[in-house]
Each structure stands twice: as structure tokens, then as C-alpha cells.
Nucleic acid binder design. Sequence first.
DNA 1: TCAGGTACTCACCAAGACGTCAGTACGGGA
DNA 2: TCCCGTACTGACGTCTTGGTGAGTACCTGA
Lengths: 112, 112
Amino acid sequence: MARNRPYTCGLDAAIDVVGGKWKATVLWTLEDQGPLRFGELRRAIPAVTEKMLIQQLRELEADGLVHREIYHQVPPKVEYSLTDFGRTLEVALRPLGDWGHANMARIEATHP
Amino acid sequence: MARNRPYTCGLDAAIDVVGGKWKATVLWTLEDQGPLRFGELRRAIPAVTEKMLIQQLRELEADGLVHREIYHQVPPKVEYSLTDFGRTLEVALRPLGDWGHANMARIEATHP
DNA sequence: TCAGGTACTCACCAAGACGTCAGTACGGGA
DNA sequence: TCCCGTACTGACGTCTTGGTGAGTACCTGA
């Protein structure tokens, strides 16, 4: 994302955190379907590539929104889940998600 | 912005609309300070360049979020204001803005 | 022995978002 | 007469974002 600091308002900061192409989808999927393994997450979001998923997950983890639990097994198993902090974001994001859902037809129509 | 259609959830659509680098700031400024002339808006957001401001305003106008009122005067006068639709977005955006405001220190600290 | 599944990493590339800078038409004021 | 301020437009370049496709280590089961 195009970092824009220092932030002029809270919105800037929030969109900075959630503005990656797949971050909203990842957050929404993790909230909806609970802890998921990497492969499960990838299958839950078919359009994302492995590289992008990993990149977005790393950034969400760095921001403290997502927890990464490694199980030392073979084959490897890594589980991703929302942190408490991530859940507060999810709550703050919900009205925006509802707005987008309610106006999706309009948005798709007006976008080139 | 990186359009991501068809949208998988409302959040995608909403972030598509509001994800431009300056759009949140513009929306917030217009909501906060009422109808503003182009020059006033530019002075209210010092870091933005003219070209970017115009571009973002055009997109917000195309999305029906901002109204552009032209006064046929010399020197020219153009006033921008939120539409009713834009105001519904602003309402949906507020929890996210509050979240960003409340966690700004944390966000600034964890971002490289 | 060898393919398969796990969760990655890395090099390279294309598209587009963003920025810089110059230029436009118009009339008012010095 | 010339410069100023208004609200733009357009060419050009750069830098970030995201995508492609390859390769990695490990153990399991056939």
C-alpha cells in the first residue's frame, strides 16, 4: 500500500492497514471460518496466488491482526487465526462491509 | 486502485471505492468542513498535488459520492460537497475511522 | 525409488498508481 | 500592457503492487 504518514486522520491509518488487495477478504474469511491452515485459506479464496496470500498474511501478522501457529509436523501445518486486536478491526469493518454489500450493484455499475 | 471484480464480499467493493490514496481524506474533509471550493480543499490537504486531487475528485464524483457545482464566474468557482450517498458512506466509514484513531500509535509503530 | 502433499521463497515482469512540471483560458487590477 | 489567481489538462517518468513460474525441504505411501 501507499503509506501516507504521518496520518492526517484515523481513516488514513485504518485504510493503510486494511487496504491491500486481499486483506479484507482474508480478514473476513478468517472471521467467518475460524482458524484455517494455509492451504485451506488458499482454497477458500481461489483467485489469490500463493505468493500474495503469504505476503498479505505476513503483513497482517506484523500488524498484530492475525496469529500464526506453527505445528512442527510432517507434512508441515500452519494455522492462521484472528487475534483479539484483529477481531476489533473486524467489528469496525462490519458497517463498511454492509455498506458495500448493500450498494454492490451500484458500485459495479459505475466502475469502468 | 486494483479493481478486484467480481467482488467476493461487500468489503472488497467498499475498499475499491474508498481505497485511493487520498479519497478517505477528501471524504473526511468534505464531511467535516462542508462544501469547499477546489482551492480550499487543496489548502485543507496540503500534501496532495493538484493533479491527484482532481483525479480523486473525479472518481468520487463518478461513484456518486461527491457533487460538483460549477459557478459560471470569472475567476472560475467550483464547489465540491458530499451527496446523500456520500454521506451514507461517511457514516459506514466512521467506526473504521474511530478504530484507526484509537490505534494510530500502534499502527504507526508496527509499520516499517 | 519416486511421486505427492505440505508451506513456503525467490527472480523476474507488467500494469497502473502516483508525482513533477509545464501549459491553458479568462477577466481583474496595477 | 503585463501579471495574478482561478480551475483545470496533458506529457512524461518513477516506483509500488501484484502476477508468473520456478525451486526448496521434509516425510509418507505406493
